[in-house]
């Protein structure tokens, strides 16, 4: 069953003279309990897409297309309905937990507030529940942690607290925006493991936004790769890593150094990633693409179905691209 259905999503923000397109024609579907990765570099529009799903757009932004959550249109929701949606059904985990937690209130206050306000717990119940939630995210001495303040906790612990807060509401969908980017690699592994385990136990769906294709592939069922505000490829994770269909996906995988093999020179994608508003009329990746031909510049490539993949590349059918071989 489709929980979240995004059709032809576009986001533009006002600039000096006209509109700057950040997200363009994004289609995205997440089923109940499914984990989907949204992978891209800076300017790809991946974070803006996630924020738009919750109505967290910058002031004056213009949103087009449809976002349907469990049969209800999110784009048509009032502020109050959006708040209710965010409080109960869709939760977000951010990259920098410190920026999203009030530094002068204790961890306990932070965790129990939502339980009391939205779920009608008594303070005593909330306290006990918060301790259990902390245990769930791998923090054993919950009672002590509840009395601590955010500055007393490491980034990894704080991110666990944020995940505990998300779990408290038992949402149906978690949007995780680079949740482990600021963390050490061993902490990243633990936080992702916790997220993964709890998500499976409770049947929550997840949209993981990340620049790290390997991380997304290891933790999500399906991946969408974004470039210049558009989704250029969507496949099952294992299929995408083995047989990428879009030159950008393949380039992204190959240009990342490997811990298992050393190459003489890394195969690079020339140039730099661009935002949607910086790209021309043709394929946005064309200027950087090793497989580009003249007709790639003609118009935006439509998304086509190709052996279980959805690819926005006119040459996808004729190309055989290298994936992650290991």
């Amino acid at each position: 069953m489709t929980l979240l259905d995004v059709r032809n999503l576009g986001v533009a923000v006002p600039a000096a003279r006209d509109w700057r397109t950040l997200v363009d024609g994004v289609d995205l579907a997440i089923g109940s309990g499914e984990a989907v990765g949204l992978v891209g570099e800076s300017g790809s529009g991946k974070s803006m897409t996630a924020r738009t799903l919750l109505g967290l757009t910058p002031p004056g932004a213009r949103v087009t297309g449809d976002i349907v959550f469990d049969g209800d249109s999110v784009t048509g929701m009032s502020r109050r309905e959006l708040r209710a949606l965010r409080a109960r059904r869709v939760a977000m985990v951010f990259q920098d937990p410190r920026a999203h937690i009030n530094p002068v209130r204790s961890v306990g206050d932070f965790l129990t507030e939502a339980l009391i306000a939205h779920l009608g717990h008594t303070p005593t119940e909330a306290q006990a529940r918060a301790t259990r939630l902390l245990a769930d995210v791998g923090i054993p001495d919950g009672a002590r942690r509840l009395r601590q303040y955010p500055h007393e906790l490491s980034g990894g612990l704080l991110q666990r607290v944020m995940i505990a807060a998300v779990l408290a509401a038992e949402p149906e969908l978690v949007l995780a925006d680079e949740p482990t980017t600021a963390l050490d690699v061993t902490t990243q592994s633990e936080v992702m493991a916790i997220l993964d385990e709890l998500r499976r136990e409770r049947g929550m769906a997840m949209l993981l936004i990340t620049h790290d294709l390997a991380l997304a592939a290891a933790t999500c069922d399906r991946l969408s790769v974004m470039y210049a505000g558009r989704i250029v490829e969507t496949q099952e994770s294992t299929a995408l890593t083995a047989t990428p269909r879009h030159p950008y996906t393949s380039g992204l995988m190959l240009s990342r150094p490997s811990i298992d093999t050393v190459v003489d020179r890394l195969p690079v994608i020339p140039g730099r990633p661009v935002a949607a508003y910086e790209s021309g009329d043709g394929c946005a990746f064309e200027p950087r693409c090793a497989h580009a031909e003249a007709h790639c510049r003609d118009r935006r490539p439509a998304v086509q179905d190709l052996a279980g993949a959805r690819v926005a590349c006119v040459r996808a059918g004729e190309l055989t691209l290298q994936g992650d071989t290991a």
Binding site: G138, S189, A218, S258, D324
Partner: peptide, 17 residues
């Protein structure tokens, strides 16, 4: 440290805090 690096076939691992 090495085990925590995401790569094909990798699964995140949980350790007690």
């Amino acid at each position: 440290l090495r085990a925590a690096v995401p790569r094909p076939g990798w699964k995140p691992e949980r350790r007690p805090v």
